[in-house]
């Protein structure tokens, strides 16, 4: 096949990469810059903003809060999202199309609406705002993404594999444990990591429904309101490093998905 390789397309792709990468790269560059501004010129190399970041007592507490929330959310969202993917692909139910559309509704409702709604509902019902509200909100926000990831693989899953397992005498549980879930595992793991990152970085739901603690995005937001100290830059650079690490773990599955062999 003669592939569309017009130089214009290549140019667009390069421009898009520059657009995507340069802002993040400048933040990393600034985080090592002795000047405490989000600005040029780069005058040297220093690690003092990282030292300031580590020395800030609020960071440790926020990091713990964010990690705890994101871990729980990732587990919950993976469980719910994977089950729902099975519902979408395999279940037979009345009004199934309607239920499926309803299940993906959070994707098309602004996060801010969910955040404000949860806050209002909990306060009106006299329930306290706190960790549970943030975890519920983040689970609602991230589960559809997990479901989409697992669905991508489940749609290509050859059900005869399950039949074969059953014919060979496996129980439901054994079939799931030794055949179905291991085959789906790459997509489930990717969904888990994605849910973790989305929750870890989410700001609006945490800001509206979290009380008595700061997640990292909440803390950075409140710091940013007072003029963005340079330790925010150091935090950003570290966050990029962490995301890079996690993304590397999703990469093999993404590659398979693109090749159509998942």
């Amino acid at each position: 096949m003669k592939r569309p390789r017009h130089p214009f397309l290549l140019l667009c792709t390069l421009a898009m990469l520059i657009y995507a990468l340069v802002p993040i790269l400048t933040v990393i560059a600034f985080s090592f810059n002795p000047l405490p501004f989000y600005a040029f010129p780069i005058t040297g190399f220093t690690g003092k903003w990282y030292a300031a970041l580590v020395a800030d007592p609020r960071i440790g507490a926020s990091l713990l809060a964010s990690l705890g929330i994101a871990t729980l959310v990732a587990l919950l969202a993976t469980l719910l999202g994977t089950l729902f993917a099975f519902f979408v692909v395999r279940a037979q139910a009345r009004f199934k199309r309607l239920w499926v559309a309803f299940g993906f509704l959070p994707l098309v409702v602004p996060v801010l609406v969910l955040a404000a709604g949860l806050q209002v509902a909990f306060v009106e019902l006299g329930l306290p705002l706190g960790y549970p509200t943030v975890i519920i909100g983040h689970t609602l926000y991230t589960s559809p993404f997990v479901a989409l990831m697992v669905m991508a693989q489940l749609l290509r899953y050859d059900e005869r594999l399950d039949d074969a397992a059953r014919d060979l005498g496996a129980s439901q549980r054994q079939m799931l444990r030794h055949v179905t879930l291991p085959i789906l595992w790459p997509s489930i793991r990717s969904g888990l990591l994605l849910a973790f990152l989305l929750s870890f970085n989410e700001w609006a739901i945490a800001f509206f429904t979290g009380r008595g603690f700061n997640t990292l995005p909440m803390l950075i937001y409140s710091m940013a309101r007072n003029g963005l100290p340079p330790s925010v830059l150091a935090y950003s650079a570290l966050a990029v490093a962490c995301v890079l690490l996690v993304a590397g773990m999703i990469l093999p599955f993404a590659l398979k998905l693109i090749r159509g062999r998942a």
Binding site: T26, Y38, P217
Partner: peptide, 26 residues
């Protein structure tokens, strides 16, 4: 993947990073 990585860094950092691009000394 490069796009994904910059995306997953989160809206807060992504937004802040534009100050370094568009600022007076950006």
């Amino acid at each position: 993947m490069l796009v994904t990585v910059t995306f997953l860094v989160g809206p807060l950092i992504r937004t802040v990073s534009w100050r370094g691009i568009l600022g007076v000394k950006g």
